[in-house]
Design a protein around this nucleic acid. Structure first.
Lengths: 200, 200
DNA sequence: TCGCAGCGATACGTCAACGTATCACTGCTT
DNA sequence: AAGCAGTGATACGTTGACGTATCGCTGCGA
């Protein structure tokens, strides 16, 4: 083996179990202590696993950290095909707010940001992850502009960033995290005007 | 002494010099290695100072970290009294973008976020700092709403957060940081319509 | 000009984590 | 049923940081 990624090939069940347990513990550890203070020994203790088992599967501490961040991928996608563009935007914004507020992602955001600042591979992963997550929102806004639901002069990418930026800002820079229930309010405030101007 | 805050009282010049040198080095170190990997010995080396000198002024590593973050305060404020509300908002947004992109604040943002997540005092400082920084923007937007320049239904606080949130989001979650020159574009996209609807 | 407070340097003991090695044991695969 | 690959435990040497202590040196204030 000697590769961090869990191979989907047939695998000794003991190995599969180890990998999953360790990655789960590593993600928790990252959320708890952050990127800089992350230690392999804590992960081993948390996972109830020997240090050697970790070193058997990942060549170094950094590789394990990267592996742990990879496990952040699994998230159900919201419905983005039904309803008006405005409704779809609200639904996506609510979904982002839920992910940002929920486990395991929420507690890892600071570690992810700090990790991205220190390590190039973490950074690449982090930025790509965010770009992918933003994509449906940008697409729906662009569609809304095209079909005249939103003002033609707005920039879909920039609007999307203002929306999700507000959610992350509240999580990271204030002690009043954004609640998913406020999604409609955020959309209304941020570019509700554009919708109203059509309804007039 | 034994207190981290630089007293404005009369002070042995050697002490004053030490404090300033050490705090400056500590801030650089935080920007470079982050909160979790911050070490006193590195700060001493970077400052060209004995370890003992640091321990003479701060009781522990954490106290020094807090002291270092305190030094982030100094920033010139933008002009917020002349021009239309719309112009003032643009000026403030541009100023925030400059601070977020400039030294020494920019490189400390990830460390600050991570530090805030791990330590209660850092968190309090961080949130208060952000709240203060947001205040003029919220006030100007509220004024614009009151005097009819902006749509009456927008929430000044939420709008302000969408604006600065976009700037921080670009800094932390993408590899295309927000450039101060895009301030007008951001304002136009986010609530340009509100201004236009009045001009109609 | 004198004396001392603050200085940088350095050494010290402690601890924790890194990454390696070894070793029975156990539960897969065949 | 056999045997081996993967396991947890444990010990090891190394490194680096914590925080303390001690030491001459120096530049500030009286």
């Amino acid at each position: 083996m000697r590769r961090g990624e869990p191979r989907s090939e047939e695998l000794d069940p003991r190995v599969a179990r180890s990998l999953q347990t360790i990655l789960h513990a590593a993600l928790e550890e990252l959320g708890d202590v952050g990127y800089g203070a992350f230690t392999i020994e804590s992960v081993a203790a948390r996972a109830g696993v020997g240090k050697s088992t970790i070193y058997r599967h990942w060549p170094s501490k950094l590789a394990l950290i990267e592996g742990a961040f990879q496990t952040l991928h699994e998230q159900a996608a919201p419905d983005i095909v039904s309803g008006s563009p405005r409704e779809r935007v609200e639904r996506i914004v609510r979904h982002v707010a839920e992910v940002v507020a929920g486990k395991p992602f929420s507690s890892c955001i600071p570690a992810l940001i700090d990790g991205a600042e220190r390590n190039r591979d973490v950074r690449r992963f982090h930025h790509r992850f965010q770009r992918e997550a933003r994509k449906p929102l940008v697409a729906v806004i662009a569609m809304g502009v095209e079909c005249g639901d939103f003002e033609s002069h707005i920039d879909p990418e920039l609007t999307a960033i203002a929306l999700v930026g507000a959610i992350f800002y509240r999580r990271l820079m204030t002690n009043e995290p954004f609640r998913p229930g406020q999604a409609a309010e955020l959309v209304a405030t941020t570019f509700g005007v554009a919708t109203r101007s059509r309804a007039r």
